[in-house]
Design a protein around this nucleic acid. Structure first.
Lengths: 196, 196, 196, 196
DNA sequence: AATGAATGAGAGTTCATTCAT
DNA sequence: CATGAATGAACTCTCATTCAT
């Protein structure tokens, strides 16, 4: 009482953890709210007391991942004074974060897409948010004279897609290697692509 | 009985067309076999006579798209004698094909991912097939001395991802622009990425 | 095949019979579609193949009763050449029909009212239909000089209500007497009320 | 603590008011205890502190209405020394009371019937109570020689039904007219029906 | 007295799949 | 080959009721 982390918040957190567990094991559509309830040691009604729908749980989870990724990336970029190194840091952080949260990543990159038409808007928003971050970075590079002018809109999308695919492959692979091994070649490729 | 199975093939084709229509409008999970039956002017039993399950229909559709894409890309590459131009041609063909088949594309890049754990293997295969095509191309470029040696495995994945993301964005956008406008900047970026 | 009374119609009829049974025993809201399915020796899906919703089943049942009542009453009135005897005949027929179908009557007069706001319109319509029949009869009596002019709108409603309540009491009573015993006193009362 | 229970009574009253509001808007079955709690600015637990069940709330409401109606009718009859005028006064009072409390009336005449088998007994009791009042009145009329002997049991039920139906129609009508306009024709009809 | 969180038994509805005709 | 009827498991969501605080 009084302190953040009330019982309700704790429950919500437990439910989200359980949902992540369940969704990433069975997929969004094949997961029953009952599964989430059981896994979070609550009852179905308990889940519905805290979330209005199954969809809302998924959305909350997506937000959680986006926040995590975004804040980490921003932080690591801010920590680097050098423009080119900012990009390297962001890439490293992203790969590291993904590698650390394979389940959330699966949710984010795989389940979310096909979960249903209802989520498309949300996913698009998330892609746009990330791409915008990259575009900002590239635009700064152009303005500050680090790189020659280029179509940063497409470039940022392509960068995002490149990382995305590398990670998706790792997520889909049943016997995945070490995701962070991709860092060096990927960095090289991306840098060169913009003429660095 | 004329050509064997010609009538059956026609039916199958009609069903697949209907399935594409339905799946890309409502998503895999939200589409009922009844919808497909109605759209293809058959009955549910009729559909099940030609396909063992809903899943099989989706898989067939995925194959259809992969074949289409692959054969077109191969053909356009074969038509170019010049190594660097082969890549340009393939990219142009891909974008063109996607642009021409927005529904199939949605199925291929969006629905398929979240359709369920059952499809992950298939999707992975398809990604691998495409990436392999790209990798072959890049390897040839290295061997033939067009480009300097590089991690072609990661590079091909990144290329695929870059294109993928550009197309996905276009598919998710409710008021999409012209996909083929992305050709020039994307080409530039990809070429530079490998040092061309 | 070919003859009316196809298998589908038979099934529908069986389902309606079962629904009547179930609804009049447990009430509309306390009846589960599963109960109806079991009672009609079908499955839930079977019921839903023939009816789009539980509500629709109830509505069909209501229509069935209204048709039955209306056609019988009309027929018995038509069979009497004498104006005053037409009314007697209709009243007798109504009481007889209600007495013969206690379950349907319960549905019609008791369950329907509280089944939910969705049914209010329907019930109102049915009340109006019956009242209109009575009003026609009374108006004819006035025109033909059998009775002095009177507010036939209210009178017909009152007549309907009077019969309604007598029947409702009989339906609600757990040890009901003979409904048709009410015929004579009721007839006397109604006739006098309009000055016959 | 002033008058014993005054606070509790106040709460109970607020809950009943809220329940009336909610029940008459959404019907008994479609109303959630939560709705009542919210409307009465309490919590679900609060409601359950004062009432053992949802059913009990409804029953209390029904009693409230019956008491209101009965006491008003009795009072207005007592105020008239003349036997025939007693009946007129009661009818006028009833219509007036119903007209003033459309929500309670809906509850009383519409919702109650179909609320569930559990309430049938109660409703029957209420109908009997009212009919008994009317029967008393009619019997007195017979004994005192105002009217000729008649089957007062059926007559009282018919009277009740006639009024009931007029009011029910008014309640079900979405654009109801003025209920009290029915007073004169109804009075005429009822009086004549018993030979007055 | 009151609150909000939790429970858990259902309810209606959907749908992939099967199969007699 | 095709049809439409039937099956039944599963799913999301609701809600009266309880109870620790």
């Amino acid at each position: 009482m009084g302190v953040t982390g009330s019982k309700a918040e704790h429950r919500i957190s437990k439910i989200l953890d359980a949902a992540l567990e369940v969704f990433s094991h069975k997929g969004y559509r094949d997961s029953a709210v009952d599964d989430i309830a059981t896994t979070s040691q609550t009852s179905k009604g308990g889940v519905y007391f805290h979330f209005p729908s199954k969809q809302a749980i998924f959305l909350a989870l997506l937000d959680r991942m986006a926040d995590l990724l975004l804040s980490r990336a921003s932080k690591s970029m801010a920590a680097e004074p050098d423009w080119p190194k900012k990009g390297d840091a962001a890439l490293a952080t992203m790969l590291h974060t993904f590698a650390d949260h394979r389940n959330l990543t699966r949710l984010f990159l795989v389940e979310a897409l096909g979960a249903g038409r209802e989520f498309n808007q949300k996913i698009l928003e998330m892609h746009i948010t990330f791409t915008a971050l990259i575009k900002d970075y590239l635009d700064t590079g152009v303005v500050d004279g680090y790189i020659a002018p280029l179509e940063t809109r497409i470039a940022s999308i392509a960068w995002f897609g490149a990382v995305n695919e590398v990670v998706t492959r790792w997520v889909l692979d049943e016997e995945p290697g070490n995701l962070e091994d991709a860092y060096n070649p990927l960095r090289e490729l991306l840098r060169r692509g913009i003429g660095l």
